[in-house]
């Protein structure tokens, strides 16, 4: 099951890369987070780690639902342009995305025999893909979504590679995430003030 969710996680990310509409991007982000949360729930069932449960639920609620909603509100509030064409040509993107996946497997190749290590390569791949998301958009919102996707990739790595980070750290990360949102809001506000 974990495999499936992670697969879906990756496919939402790739789809997000090819999206040209802002609200659709928020949706993909939400779905991405939800699949991540579900994968985390699966992991929880496997490892029976309370901390993982909490972070899975937080992910589902906060990242899967609250953040996309908030962003939509922001976008409405600040009248953001909703058409966000990617800067990288589709022809290149088609080559680039598989290439990244191949590269990450090549990178992890020396330790691939260890259990669960293919997830590491997947999360590095999603890190790179979210970087591509940041690269290919000029719009600030898309960049922020890219950054959040990156956060998800981090979470994926923490969850699969280390079988759960220490609770405290997870909470710290969430706290910082919220802080980031506050700052983003402030930035927008000042800009429009």
């Amino acid at each position: 099951m974990t495999n499936l969710f992670i697969g879906l996680f990756l496919s939402t990310l790739i789809t997000a890369l090819l999206t040209t509409r802002l609200y659709r991007l928020f949706l993909w982000y939400g779905l991405n987070s939800i699949f991540l949360g579900l994968a985390a729930l699966e992991q929880y069932k496997l490892l029976d780690d309370k901390a993982l449960l909490i972070s899975a639920l937080l992910t589902l609620l906060l990242k899967g639902l609250l953040l996309p909603y908030l962003f939509k509100l922001f976008a409405l509030k600040f009248h953001t342009e909703r058409n966000i064409p990617p800067k990288i040509r589709l022809q290149y993107a088609i080559l680039l995305i598989p290439a990244i996946l191949v590269f990450t497997f090549y990178l992890i190749n020396p330790i691939l025999h260890l259990p669960g290590k293919n997830y590491i390569s997947l999360s590095i791949a999603s890190l790179f893909l979210s970087l591509v998301l940041i690269i290919e958009h000029k719009a600030i919102f898309a960049k922020v979504i890219g950054f959040l996707m990156m956060e998800n990739a981090l979470f994926l790595l923490g969850m699969t590679a280390t079988e759960g980070m220490p609770m405290l750290i997870e909470l710290g990360i969430f706290f910082d995430l919220l802080m980031a949102v506050v700052v983003i809001n402030l930035l927008f506000e000042v800009e429009h003030a």
């Binding site: 590491i120 950054f147 956060e151 790595l157 923490g158």
Partner: peptide, 15 residues
């Protein structure tokens, strides 16, 4: 992004 890369590294080291 930079900070995320650092965290990524930290997780890998932890792993």
């Amino acid at each position: 992004i930079a900070i995320s890369l650092i965290l990524f590294g930290i997780i890998l080291i932890y792993a």
